[in-house]
Amino acid sequence: MTINFLKFYKYFLLCFIYFSIFVIIWKILSLFVSPIALPSPYNTFLSFKLSWIHGYFLKDFTVSVIRVLIGWAIAVIVGTILGILIGYYKYFKFLEPINDFFRYLPVPAFTPLTLTWFGIGELSKIFLIFLGTIVQILVMVSDEIRRFPGGYIEVGKLFGYSRNDILFEIILRGIRPNLFDIYRVTLGWAWTYLIVGELVAANEGLGFRILKAQRFLQTDLIFSYLFIIGLIGLFSDFLFKSIKPRLFKYLQNSRELT
């Protein structure tokens, strides 16, 4: 307990030191550059404070978080199911080249199409997030299924488990921690596609505010919003990482199953 507390304390102390160094360098650089190109840390903080006081930050934040969570959650559900089917059943393998085709298409290129299909409402942004993340989830899940150690499958066969039993009772149970990591990584990508969607067609949201700030040369506001997006990413990553050992107790002090 004490050792854990010390580790935790050291970790945050180190984070604080690195962050302070980053802010100091930023401050020094901002002295030599125009505030439009690089606002000072203090001005960035002030602009964030203003967005908070005027209430639009909370609104932008809530709208963006909801969009990301919905798009990502749908992609997780559909991508996992399709990934399992492609990775395990040969009849679904034909879906893989189709997915690979879409995987190589840049998601921003779909923005005009999504606007045509879904208008400027919520659906177009959610669809972009969904499209950007599902193609990645699908390929990673199917790879996980294929890479699953054959030795465990042999054990299932020896004890009379059917092909479906082996999938549900061995493979899917075995790859759960890896699926969890896939979801963590793709949540980060979902944020990228959110900004793409909001930059083009939105009336609120973090991406929309960044674009609006650019029009009025409010670089300090852009900086503060970018900072917030980074912090959200850090927080969600931290959340996933701290939940994982609680969910998968068997991974403590042991190698993960790959």
Partner: peptide, 20 residues
């Protein structure tokens, strides 16, 4: 022709499931 419960197997690496 295929595995049966009449024949058991103990593997060199044991193959016990880490998640159970």
């Amino acid at each position: 022709k295929k595995p049966t419960l009449k024949i058991g197997f103990l593997f060199q690496d044991y193959r016990i499931f880490p998640w159970l």
